[in-house]
Design a protein around this nucleic acid. Structure first.
Lengths: 261, 261
DNA sequence: CGAACCCTTGACAGAAATCAACTAAGGTGG
DNA sequence: CCACCTTAGTTGATTTCTGTCAAGGGTTCG
């Protein structure tokens, strides 16, 4: 694989602390591949041969059953996925596909398993990473079981807004149909939920969301770190969002709506 | 703590492989406590000071939000819980309460964290355990997002039946209201779902379920290891069920119904 | 025996899915 | 450059599913 992204990977919590020699071992055997959009990287049910690391682009993790499909996470650089399946040498529970042109590093899971047997630092990092993944799914499950669709959407909007520089306006980092699937509803239901939240305190204009009444939204979502996660933790569904206003300044156009309403 | 259960704990996958000295360290600092039914052991949001191990009885893991509540798992001996929170030294995402008279070992999480830094075998076992927990929650989430309430119930029944010695009849290992909460529905909805499955192939008589048409049930549930888990893996909601016919023999009364239908 | 509590059932309300039609935006190829 | 096609998103009408509220039967336990 090419070396240009090694420093990025090395900086991941998972790889940051391991011995240099072991990092070399793992990455030497790894593949570096770039895929176009809508390529299925992983088939649910297949055996886990590679740990995947998203370097550029974005990847959807989803699962299907009886013709239905649901997305479980959307990953952006730089993050790893399907670590658990690699560890257990078990079938993937989720499929993965690229959402856009995406660069992925593939680390053979055999190498991975070999290394965290001999590198305590890496083992430690793996434990921490897995615990974080686990907690993330638990929160998602709580979200699904305790909140209604509208409440989930409100919470999602507040969560996204918190990461926005101005805290008020942001662009949806993923397509609405994908967001719907992540929230566990149909696109139609999402559309209606959005509409109903407009009357509450979230203006919607295409990809742009503008919070007009945070209090009112919070009265719907009742955000809590025990479901929505602490501020410093990344969400699974599209944080690190590409966004207008990334420079931290609030721009006039962040509040401007385009023609249609 | 008393020593009588040390061998049981030692046999847990999590502790089986670690060095004897380290096992001694961990258990020496541990508490052994017995609680009556309906005692809340853990408060969601509190910081994780102890890894818990159920020795006798059963424990419900649940979470609440805005007056609502949902159960995320029911644990029976011998199993550990809230490992992830202990590792990350983070607030518990779930509360826990005893469902009956229950004996629990409490291992201080500081000791735990100290030991898996110095014991590679224990670190390895922790990784494996966490990966299993993660996969279990992912399956639960898929169940929730991909199947309807009736389909989830059918799948649950088939799963339970597979673990029964005769494969056809078994006793619900948990109260129906608890099962409802685990499946993410109200007790009323569960009751109706049960009724509707009776016409399909699952006779219900109080706690006893008898499968009268496996094929028909499977046509509803479409069971798959990618959601329901492989045969050898334990379910989170009440496997290792206390059950008539545990000796492996099929008894006539397993098929008998009591008076009312 | 009474008081809870679990479970069930019925009637109803609300939430979300489905089916269908329509708009808008983006890309393609003539 | 424009006609055409595809796809995301919206909206409306309707059905299906699930929750809520209320009541009653049965059981357990003090």
């Amino acid at each position: 694989m090419r070396d240009a992204e090694l420093p990025d990977i090395r900086q991941l919590p998972l790889f940051r602390t391991m011995a240099e020699a072991n990092f070399a071992t793992v990455t030497r055997a790894a593949y570096d591949q770039t895929f176009p959009a809508q390529v299925q990287l992983i088939d649910e049910g297949a055996t886990a041969d590679f740990l995947h690391i998203v370097i550029e682009g974005s990847v959807e993790l989803f699962a299907g059953w009886q013709g239905r499909e649901t997305t479980l996470a959307v990953l952006r650089p730089v993050s790893t996925f399907i670590l658990a399946a690699c560890i257990r040498d078990a079938p993937y529970l989720m499929s993965a596909r690229t959402l856009e042109k995406t660069r992925v590093i593939l680390v053979p899971s055999v190498d991975l398993r070999a290394v965290f047997r001999i590198d305590p630092e890496f083992a430690m990092a793996t434990i921490t990473e897995l615990a974080a993944c686990y907690r993330s799914v638990v929160r998602h499950t709580k979200d699904l079981k305790l909140r209604s669709a509208r409440e989930r959407l409100a919470a999602y909007i507040l969560k996204q807004a918190r990461t926005a520089p101005n805290g008020v306006s942001f662009l949806l980092p993923i397509e609405k149909r994908l967001l719907a699937s992540f929230l566990g509803i149909t696109p139609e239901s999402l559309s209606r939920a959005m509409k109903s939240l407009q009357e509450v305190g979230a203006k919607v204009d295409g990809q742009r969301i503008i919070i007009t009444d945070r209090r009112a939204l919070e009265a719907v979502a009742h955000p809590t770190p025990l479901i929505d996660g602490p501020d410093h933790e990344g969400l699974t569904a599209g944080l690190e969002l590409p966004e207008a206003g990334v420079d931290g300044l609030v721009r006039p156009e962040d509040f401007a709506l385009s023609g249609r309403t």
